[in-house]
Structure formats: structure tokens, C-alpha cells
């Protein structure tokens, strides 16, 4: 991994963390654990289409670790970890079928898989009773995933525009 790439990945991780902290300050109207916009997903979806699988995975795992420390909720790490493993595995496979112009579709699958990973972790820790949350998470995952994917698409478009101007 060269220095330029390392710097880019570090900046992306930093941006994702800032987005995470900002999102923590937004009051969540839905008192259901696991329901959130997951704005940091914008960075993951973007990175997925611009960096290697290994690089994206390293970035995401460093981010969720630091996010759990910053949020003062280490339990959250286990849920984020399961969620991220599901989400990254799914999106890396789907990347072959989905081109960059349809990022939002990849993002919807990513978000839904993230929620499924979280529920899996919750079933192990809390017992099977929590499975009733799954349908709510499917709905919120679809909406949040489409939203963050759409923003990532706009970002990709703008970045490409800037690159073209510079050249």
C-alpha cells in the first residue's frame, strides 16, 4: 500500500468517524435499537468501488472500533462487527453485478445485511425474543440504505467532475 493510498484511506476513516459523531448528536425518533441512518455507510459504499476489498475491510473495522470507543459503548462494537461482516461480505459479492451508477442498490443490500448481522449478534447475546425487531430493521434498512447510497452516488459524481476539471 503506497503512502498516497494510506493517506486517502486515513482521511476517509476520519470523515466516517466525524459523520458518526455528528449522527450521534441527532436525536433518533425511533426508540428501537439498531434503527439509524448510518450515514458513515456513505463512505463505505464509496470506498467499496474505489479501493481493494482488503483496504475497505481494514478501514471499516478500524472505524467501528474507534466509533465504539468515541461513543463510549463497547457493547456496540460487537453489534457493529457482526453487522459489518455481513454487510461487507454481501456488498463485495454484489459489486460484481452492480455498477457504480446503481450504488444505491448495493447500499440497500448493505444496510439490510448490516441489520441482519446485528440481529444475529443480538440473538446470541439476548436470546431469540429480539427477532421480532427484524421486520422493523428491514424497513429502516431499505430506507436508510437507499438514502445513504443516493448521497454516495452524488458524491461519486461530484468527485469525478472535479477530477475532470483538474485534468
Amino acid at each position: 500500500m503506497n503512502v498516497k493510498k494510506l493517506a486517502e484511506l486515513s482521511i476517509l476513516t476520519g470523515i466516517a468517524l466525524i459523520i458518526f459523531v455528528v449522527e450521534l448528536q441527532i436525536p433518533n425518533p425511533f426508540p428501537i435499537p439498531g434503527i439509524k441512518l448510518g450515514l458513515a455507510n456513505i463512505i463505505t459504499v464509496y470506498a467499496l468501488y474505489h479501493y481493494r476489498a482488503k483496504e475497505v475491510m481494514t478501514m471499516v473495522f478500524i472505524r467501528i472500533f474507534l466509533a465504539s470507543v468515541l461513543g463510549g459503548n463497547m457493547m456496540a462494537f460487537i453489534y457493529s462487527f457482526f453487522g459489518s461482516v455481513f454487510c461487507l461480505t454481501g456488498m463485495l459479492l454484489l459489486k460484481r453485478f452492480i455498477d457504480e451508477k446503481h450504488l444505491w442498490i448495493a447500499s440497500v443490500f448493505g444496510a439490510v445485511l448490516h441489520n441482519m448481522g446485528q440481529i444475529t449478534a443480538a440473538i446470541f447475546i439476548m436470546g431469540t425474543g429480539v427477532i421480532v425487531y427484524l421486520p422493523f430493521l428491514l424497513v429502516s434498512g431499505c430506507i436508510a440504505g437507499a438514502f445513504t447510497g443516493w448521497i454516495a452516488q452524488i458524491a461519486v459524481h461530484r468527485i469525478k467532475g472535479n477530477d475532470a476539471k483538474q485534468k
Binding site: 454484489l94 453485478f97 452492480i98 446503481h102 442498490i105 440497500v108 443490500f109 439490510v112 421480532v132 427484524l134 421486520p135 422493523f136 430493521l137 428491514l138 424497513v139 434498512g141 431499505c142 437507499a146
Partner: peptide, 25 residues
């Protein structure tokens, strides 16, 4: 074509979620 299938799956997941949520509520 591929995208249509994938979007269809997204919509199906969403609808399953809505129905499931209603059943739970």
C-alpha cells in the same frame, strides 16, 4: 435487466418488512 431483478428484491424485502412489522405491532 440485472438491476431490475435486484430492485425487485429490494422492494420485496421492504414489503416483507412492512408486513412483518404490522404483524408484530
Amino acid at each position: 435487466m440485472k438491476n431490475k431483478v435486484l430492485i425487485g428484491i429490494c422492494i420485496a424485502i421492504f414489503l416483507i418488512g412492512v408486513i412483518g412489522s404490522a404483524l408484530v405491532l
